[in-house]
Amino acid sequence: MGIFLFAEQVLNGLQLGTMLFLMASGLTLVFGIMNLVNLAHGSFYMMGAYFAATLFKLTGSLVLAAAGAFVGVLVLGMALEIAILHSFYRRDHLDQVLATFGMILFFNELVRMVWGPQAYFLALPEALNGSVELIPGAPYPIYRLIIIVAGLTVALGLYLLISRSRIGMLIRAGASNRTMIEALGVNIRVLFTVVFGLGAALAGLAGTMAGPLLAVQVGMGDSVLITTLVVIVIGGIGSVRGAFLASLLVGLSDTFGRMLLPASLAEMTIYILMAVILYRRPQGLFPAHG
């Protein structure tokens, strides 16, 4: 393998990894704090992509579309939490899996009705459509670099939010001891709603960014959801730091797996990785509780 090929594949792995982290951070927080398994997280990814695609068509601005989609999914997430999901926090995982599975069916069908069954393909503005030579002689698509930078920025932002701010302190407290923050007299209902909405919005952002690169289509969140679940289980459910490292690990091993392993193993790489890690460490790499 040439050094250029290796470098390019590392970037590809990072791009996939940062995208997964946007998905995983919200999912792992919601599980860690509210003890909720949310399969509908992939639907937020899809809704983000559709919101952004629609806004992009209306405004022609990628930034406006991304911002609008972020707010749109934030509101959608909070509304769902208030209307339905909060009453499932104290239910067992089976009920949560089923109720949110029902939501997947609902959202997929809703999108099919509103936007039609065919996929949308978004064209990038000319300025983002080319490539740059980070290393001379090895061009890399600008848009993929933007995804990497955006993902890392969100990771840094989340790190600061969680380690430095008051809401972050509550999140950390909530993740390690749920009853304690209630005892502190914090309005936990509002905290839950905000955290859920934020996680949904980050998933929406991932969908927004995937739109122009891949395709905006019904059910686009389903396969991403499964990969994201693998990520948070490897990272240790509830741990944002674990989710970050696991995202990059999964992104890189999937990319290199496809290149180096025979086809029959390549698709299974991440599941084998997960099974091995769970066998060695049944709570994932960074268990959040205890």
Binding site: V230, V233, Y271, M274, A275
Partner: peptide, 27 residues
């Protein structure tokens, strides 16, 4: 392998094995 784990980890590990089987037959 699976029944040693609990709760969500059990859900996930059975899912992972099923995905492996799925991709095994896909390829």
């Amino acid at each position: 392998v699976s029944v040693r784990t609990q709760g969500l980890y059990f859900i996930m590990i059975t899912l992972a094995f099923a995905q492996m089987a799925y991709f095994f037959f896909v390829t």
